[in-house]
Nucleic acid binder design. Structure first.
Lengths: 189, 189
DNA sequence: ATCCATGATGTCAGTAACTGTCAACGCCTA
DNA sequence: TAGGCGTTGACAGTTACTGACATCATGGAT
């Protein structure tokens, strides 16, 4: 065994979620998280750019999945259909994850404005990369941005209902319903 | 004339926009802004909760206008039509404002991730209050949240195009077009 | 006219988020 | 065995932000 325990990053994420849950985000210092993980404050900030980022460690992977899902949609799909493919991929990934941890994390995030702010920023990142994929598929502007952003709205509303317990079905079902509702609200047919 | 110059808040906003433009958000300290406004750092934080908020002084008023616009839409309007009424009110308000200042402010915000994050949070606030108005109008969930959020997407995309110079028309025209594009993308008719 | 409540500001001390720098240490490879 | 590389610790420093208290003008009450 090495000089240090393995998986510093993972230990910091666990410690942060536990402390944020127990004492609240504001009342938890980076030094406390580091100490609980058996590390120093300096090391915390080497792994995570700031105190919020420690709760979003999986966002890069999720973004890759979403992008891959959109890129893999049939060429005949319209913009929003393609985005739906990305949302399906995201649902699969989150569905594999322990739902109790998702709920705990969600509860921490909704309890703090700074964390809600960061989550919105992550969604905006996803939307921007999805819009890029749509443009690669030949979708123009502003359609690409609108479709990507509307898709992230669907994602946000669905995850909110799923993680808060408002809707107890599997995430992919909640997601499909939300997409259908958006089409109904916006379609005006 | 009193002991102090009038309109401390306005002077702080002007000083901040100028310094953020000239040196960048990160390279500007709250003390520098306060000094330029003839005040102290402590007074800066009495007027604004943090360094970012000084750029969003008008957001409460804008939110009121949007909410009033939605609430004032004809009862026969669908959810997204009602939100369109709010966007029209927002366009009117921003249209009255000096466009060069809007562009300068927009340039500062897009140049900094923390400021973009805050702007997204403001839009989410608008969306939440719009969703509340929609529910008061009898719209259920998740339709209210989806319509409100989709509306803010339209707002964001339109203001981005208007303030960045991508689209040189008046804001209300850009906004109406964006709404129509969203309906076309989402409607699938 | 004087006193006092109120509101805006200044002053100062303090906490904690974050950063730069350098040293220490284990691992891997030549 | 030597040396490069990556991770961590130690430590000093800046700055965002907060709490507590003093100061000074304004306006109303006495």
């Amino acid at each position: 065994m090495g000089r240090w325990q393995p998986d510093s990053r993972g230990r910091l994420q666990e410690a942060a979620l536990a402390l944020y849950s127990e004492h609240g985000f504001d009342q938890t210092t980076a030094a406390q998280i580091a100490a609980r993980a058996g590390l120093t404050e300096r090391t915390f900030f080497r792994h995570f750019a700031d105190k919020r980022e420690v709760l979003f460690g999986g966002s890069a992977l999720l973004q890759e999945r979403i992008v891959a899902g959109v890129a893999g949609a049939p060429p005949t799909d319209g913009p929003l259909d393609a985005v739906g493919g990305g949302l399906a991929a995201a649902s699969d990934m989150l569905g594999e994850f322990r739902r109790d941890l998702s709920r705990q994390r969600h509860a921490v995030i909704v309890a703090n404005p700074e964390l809600r702010e960061r989550e919105l920023a992550k969604l905006a990142d996803y939307a921007e990369s999805v819009a890029t994929v749509l443009r690669d598929r030949g979708v123009g502007e502003p359609q690409a941005s609108l479709a990507a952003d509307a898709g992230m709205t669907v994602f946000r509303v669905a995850v909110e209902r799923w993680a808060s317990g408002t809707d107890d079905r599997a995430l992919d079902a909640v997601m499909r319903d939300a997409m259908a509702e958006l089409r109904a609200v916006a379609g005006g047919c």
